[in-house]
Design a protein around this nucleic acid. Structure first.
Lengths: 126, 126
DNA sequence: CTTGACCTTGTCACCGACGTCAAGCTTTAC
DNA sequence: GTAAAGCTTGACGTCGGTGACAAGGTCAAG
């Protein structure tokens, strides 16, 4: 199939697909007229990429998953490299949550100091 | 005082000060040779900006606080506009925390599905 | 007079994942 | 035959807050 069909079936723009190719995440054959040609497995790969991005992974994060799929695994997340990315992302999210909680306290503290009485139990404070 | 001294006293770069001016957050008189001239109140203003930025506010978020200080209030956070920003930021942080928690669950769920048994109670799950 | 510290404006570079032209092919449908 | 739809590469814009130049003007000390 050509790029337009792949885009429709995977739910992305053609621009995104060319970008993924440029970054080395997907590949394409070229037909005689220079058009990109894809097969079914590419639908799976792009879908995997989008699924990962929808939960906050970057394209680089998705790379091991793509490699894993391409090496024949039915799931992109079952290879050791992918598992490492999962663990890293979970740790990253945990850190971000901690940072946000800390920032929330700081903001609330600044608020309370700058404007005593303004912060009347509107939301649950920790 | 000139830009270098203000930068030192407020703990920012001269580049940052020119940027703040370009964005309309601080102002400066010019001496005969074209150099920017500041006074004591500008130290307070820049300090306020940095304090807000250190807890995740953008420059735009800081604008009402600056206006508040300039209008004579001892605290930049005591004007209604500033209070509104505080509330908005707190709501924003709360939303980000909720999003991150949701994402964490999604990642953990994807992980568990892609690689059953990989996610052996490493961290506390909700 | 010269060095060096300080000041000026203006511009490019960064990061990520594209959107949005531009200008020109090919193919399909009528 | 022609218009529309689809394809190609290339390049700039986005967002925030600077860092890092370039190319120059200014001022005090020696």
């Amino acid at each position: 199939m050509r790029i337009g069909e792949l885009a429709r079936r995977a739910g992305v723009s053609t621009r995104a697909l060319r970008y993924y190719e440029q970054r080395g995440l997907i590949r394409s054959r070229r037909s005689a007229n220079g058009y990109r040609e894809y097969d079914e497995s590419d639908v799976r790969i792009v879908t995997e990429i989008r699924e990962l991005m929808s939960v906050g992974f970057t394209l680089e994060d998705a790379r091991p998953f793509v490699d894993c799929l391409r090496s024949g695994h039915p799931s992109g997340g079952s290879c050791p490299e992918s598992v490492a990315v999962y663990r890293r992302k979970l740790a990253e999210i945990d850190r971000q949550i901690r940072d946000l909680l800390a920032r929330r306290s700081e903001v609330a503290a600044q608020f309370a100091e700058a404007c005593p009485g303004c912060l009347l139990s509107r939301r649950g404070e920790s």
